[in-house]
Design a protein around this nucleic acid. Structure first.
Lengths: 106, 106
DNA sequence: ATAACATTTCGTATTTTTGCGAAATAAAGA
DNA sequence: TCTTTATTTCGCAAAAATACGAAATGTTAT
């Protein structure tokens, strides 16, 4: 009898990351940062994304809290970029999900 | 001036999939189905997951709606398994996100 | 037909997420 | 110091997600 009361921490972590990715604005930001391997500024993003400044700020905050991006102050801006180490961890989690070893016990 | 009013459909799709993955129970189910390349039944799952039957049913419904799983009736049960074609599509979306071509235009 | 079983839908309550504008913060320049 | 600029926090409202038990649905077995 596998009467679990809580799900595996790895499962929790995966869900946490996916939740952070679960909004078009946040996907857009991550896609941009990941693809160009560069950084961006809140002020630039607000011209490309259909949300107000404060809302965008909240999305950035969430991505930061989830560990997927990091921001450093570069006056007069705040420069955001991918948090590489966590990004790699997330990448591996997704790779495990989509390319699992098929020989697990029943 | 790239004054977008709506984000790219691909971005929307990605967010939709991530949202479906953004809950521990749903991650658990998908992980199980993907890893063992097999099917499962609502009645079995309810013993491993700390939620009630109706709640589990809703999560399954959401995964089905998102296209990630499919259910077929196999009386007296309903057998759920991965929707392989959509699963491959999702896999590719994540691969693109994590392994982007770095030579995109600025 | 009716009883038993597996699962879903319904109604509802609680919590979380999303979004905005106004006000706050912080730093740079006049 | 007083603006200006860039961004965040606050306070709030609206919408969506989560969870549950009760009732409904549909199927199999008696």
């Amino acid at each position: 009898m596998v009467k679990k009361k809580e799900l595996d921490p790895e499962v929790q972590e995966m869900a946490r990351i996916c939740k952070a990715l679960g909004h078009p604005v946040r996907v857009y930001i991550l896609q941009k940062l990941a693809a160009r391997n560069t950084c961006c500024y809140s002020g630039d993003l607000v011209d490309e994304i259909p949300v107000g400044r404060s809302t965008l700020s909240q999305h950035l905050k969430e991505l930061k809290f989830a560990g997927l991006i990091q921001g450093e102050i570069e006056p007069p801006f705040i420069k955001y970029c991918i948090n590489r180490s966590n990004w790699e961890k997330a990448k591996m989690l997704f790779e495990d999900l989509f390319n699992p070893e098929m020989d697990k016990p029943v």
